[in-house]
Design a protein around this nucleic acid. Structure first.
Length: 419
RNA sequence: GUGGGCGUAGCUCAGCCUGGUUAGAGCGUCAGGUUGUGGCCCUGAAGGCCGGGGGUUCAAGUCCCCUCGCUCACCCCA
């Protein structure tokens, strides 16, 4: 056991997995940039106050924030998500409306790790500030949906709900609380504890003993104002227009206090774990105002890399990319020829690798094979003396000789044909 | 923070119940299999304070306690 290891809840993403992570973000960027979203890069830690707006009644702020006091006495927190940071940046910089941004990168929470949940976890996501059109909700949901499809995932369900406007939500929470209080005796003690903190979250209980009480609980839809009802109807209509399947799940309540109106979640039915949500989001009209800005509607979603990649594994899609190098230079004459040739090949745009340490030709050929090179270029004493190189296709084709000056052209030709 | 399971070679694991000669396998790595050439095959080598500490015993990878870590679940979910 080495003296130092990754600290709990963190881990190294080694090759070749790291390349897969990068492709994941590349695919996401391609999807959202085609819809006019621009990248934003936020600090990884901010004043704790920025994140305290997430909700007082949740454990999120009280025990799961990765916070500390820095040497200047500032109470800061590693960002637990990026929505609050985006809103803070919006208030700080006054961008033109609508502000459509996307982001990727690590977030942090202080809690015990389990499958698909780490203390440092990566997300990609988008936020749009300044538009309350329900058709924007549809666009945002459609982008997430399109991204899952771009990855190749098929077993992802879209759940949508609305929490109504601020007044609706407050009246619903009150009604829910009195309902659960009346049936407290039938709830598990865990759910009774949740009831004390946040009645909405009781709806999220997966415990079988709670199921009956929850199924009889009032639905948020009974509390919709006419405006909230028509907004939600327009969202559903838009999704149908795009041919995106969804289920209305009136038990879907997101945990944070700032959510209003449209909420949605993507659930992988391919995952066999306690955590099956691979992404989610919703409207948070009011968050910008909470952070000291003008009243501004907002909506966004975040998608977790770890869990989404687990879903990809479960569906055997978006696998590790096993593309190797184009050409491997074998030099049995000391290595100076390889130094020169790999430089020339790389300058010509080819992926070229070589061995170091003056190994035997056999050993270097093994390395060439492992590099999955399309072609090997071999320089032995004989070639060096005659000013030529042996070019050997690694798929078993006939090898040939060519003058050193034509190696790049010859290799380029073979690599092109192989593709 | 709470509970269950698990820590033996780089990786996946056997051995532990029923303590006893130099702790094993597969894969991977490295080197060979004559005269300059990969994959398949064959041979060989390197690589382990058996997570750490304490205890029981003539003797501990094996039994007991503690601790650290991983993992699954609970809580919570950004």
């Amino acid at each position: 056991m080495p003296e130092f290891q990754t600290t709990p809840g963190t881990r190294d993403i080694l090759p070749p997995d790291a390349a897969r992570w990068r492709r994941f973000v590349d695919v996401f960027a391609g999807v959202v940039e085609s819809a006019g979203y621009e990248q934003i890069i936020l600090p990884m830690f901010e004043d704790l106050g920025v994140f305290q707006r997430l909700g007082d009644a949740t454990d999120v702020v009280t025990k799961e924030m990765y916070d500390f006091v820095d040497k200047g006495g500032r109470h800061v927190a590693l960002r637990p998500e990026q929505t609050a940071g985006v809103c803070r940046a919006f208030v700080q910089h006054h961008p033109n409306l609508p502000w459509k941004v996307w982001y990727s990168g690590p977030n942090f929470r202080y809690e015990k790790a389990q499958q698909g949940r780490y203390r440092q976890f990566d997300q990609v996501g988008v936020e749009v500030l300044g538009v309350d059109d329900p058709l924007l909700d549809v666009e945002v949901i459609a982008l997430a949906h399109g991204f899952y499809r771009a990855l190749g995932l098929r077993n992802v369900e879209l759940h949508v709900n609305s929490l109504g406007d601020t007044g609706d939500r407050a009246r619903y929470v009150a009604a829910l609380e009195s309902y659960f209080r009346a049936h407290e005796i039938d709830l598990t003690k865990e759910s009774r504890a949740t009831l004390e903190r946040n009645p909405l979250r009781v709806l999220d209980s997966k415990r079988a003993e709670d199921r009956d009480v929850i199924s009889q609980a009032p639905s948020i839809s009974e509390f919709f104002s006419p405006e909230a009802a028509s907004h939600f109807a327009a969202v559903q209509d838009g999704l149908s227009l795009l041919g995106i399947d969804f289920v209305v799940n009136d038990r879907l309540v997101r945990g944070l206090d700032y959510y209003r109106s449209t909420t949605f979640e993507f659930v992988s039915t391919a995952l066999d774990a306690a955590q099956t949500a691979v992404g989610g989001g919703g409207r948070y009209d009011g968050l910008v105002e909470d952070l000291g800005g003008p009243s501004t509607p907002g909506i966004g979603f975040a998608i977790g890399l770890d869990r989404t990649l687990l879903a990809c594994d479960a569906e055997s899609v978006f696998g590790i990319d096993s593309s190797g190098t184009d050409v491997f230079v074998v030099d049995a004459t000391g290595g100076r020829s390889a130094l020169l040739l790999t430089a020339e090949l790389r300058n010509a745009g080819l992926r070229a690798d070589r061995a170091f340490g003056a190994k035997s030709m056999k050993s270097q050929m093994k390395s060439a094979n492992k590099s999955r090179a399309t072609v090997a270029v071999i320089i032995g004493e004989d070639e060096l003396a005659r000013g030529v190189a042996t070019v050997r296709p690694m798929d078993g084709g006939e090898q040939s000789e060519c003058p050193l000056g034509q190696v790049v052209a010859t290799v380029t030709d073979i690599v092109k044909k192989a593709k």
